[in-house]
Design a binder for these strands. Structure first.
Length: 238
DNA sequence: GAACCGATTTCCT
DNA sequence: GGAAATCGGTTCT
């Protein structure tokens, strides 16, 4: 049942090219009947220290160190104090590059993904309870009831949601996604799978100056219902 | 639909 | 100290 692992050789070159190759690939968590499998349908490219939207723009730091290493590793970071984001490292060692996984279409293990989304929410809820913010806690509990009714396509339709649905956190930073032995890993798509690709500007990088702000380094599979779209039209002016 | 907002904590220039 | 590669809910048009 396992597919071929995703070859590192498809990732260790130009990030723009790797982005097109990574679209359609499978993201897999775990194995057996509880394995979670999804199809990557949206990514964003961050490449080089001169890319002023990239975490690498200030050079190598403790947080972004994985970006400077070999391709195929996972770069996981926390953003806005609560959401994790998964990136696949690209380029040759020494040259920082990564593809942010923005959306995944669930293919198997959908119930596990729902459970993971709920777990993530519960963790937030208990934290809110500790701090005594009762209103926040009640609101989160209500959100939990909604997860059961979510469409499959909404389970991992955003970078933070991908990590919630696949239980990705700090401990996954630096793991090898090309190693078939990894609990979190990449696999090849079906060979005959159609991949019509569209591009556009990256999301959530309003702090970046031109030309980086407008570079069409966001890639998605055309017409896919899982692609995250909401955020595109509401970014700050710049 | 679009625009605004709060939550929360890590990171760094 | 301030901002951050987000999300989900609310409040408008």
């Amino acid at each position: 049942m396992d597919r071929a692992p995703f070859p590192r050789a498809l990732l260790d070159g130009a990030t723009a090219e790797a982005a097109r190759l990574l679209l359609g690939a499978r993201l897999v968590r775990g194995s057996g009947f509880r394995a979670r499998v999804g199809r990557i349908v949206e990514v964003e490219a961050y490449v080089g220290q001169d890319d002023l939207a990239s975490h690498a723009r200030f050079g190598q730091t403790k947080r972004n160190a994985v970006m400077f290493g070999p391709a195929g590793l996972a770069y996981v970071y926390l953003v806005y104090g609560m959401h994790y984001c998964l990136n696949v490292v690209t380029e040759q060692p020494g040259r920082p590059g990564a593809l942010l996984i923005r959306a995944v279409e669930p293919l198997a293990g959908v119930d596990e993904m729902r459970r993971a989304r709920l777990e993530w929410l519960k963790a937030r809820t208990s934290r809110a309870a500790e701090r005594g913010t009762e209103a926040e806690r009640a609101r989160l509990l209500l959100s939990g009831e909604r997860i059961a009714g979510l469409a499959d396509t909404s389970l991992a339709s955003g970078p933070g949601l991908v990590c919630a649905a696949f239980s990705i956190g700090r401990s996954d930073d630096g793991i090898d996604l090309c190693d078939p032995g990894s609990d979190l890993r990449l696999e090849m798509p079906d060979q005959d799978e159609a991949r019509s690709i569209q591009t556009g500007p990256r999301v959530g990088i309003g702090y970046a100056p031109e030309p980086w702000l407008s570079r069409p380094w966001r890639y998605w599979i055309k017409g896919n219902a899982t692609v995250s779209g909401r955020v595109t039209s509401r970014r700050r002016a710049g």
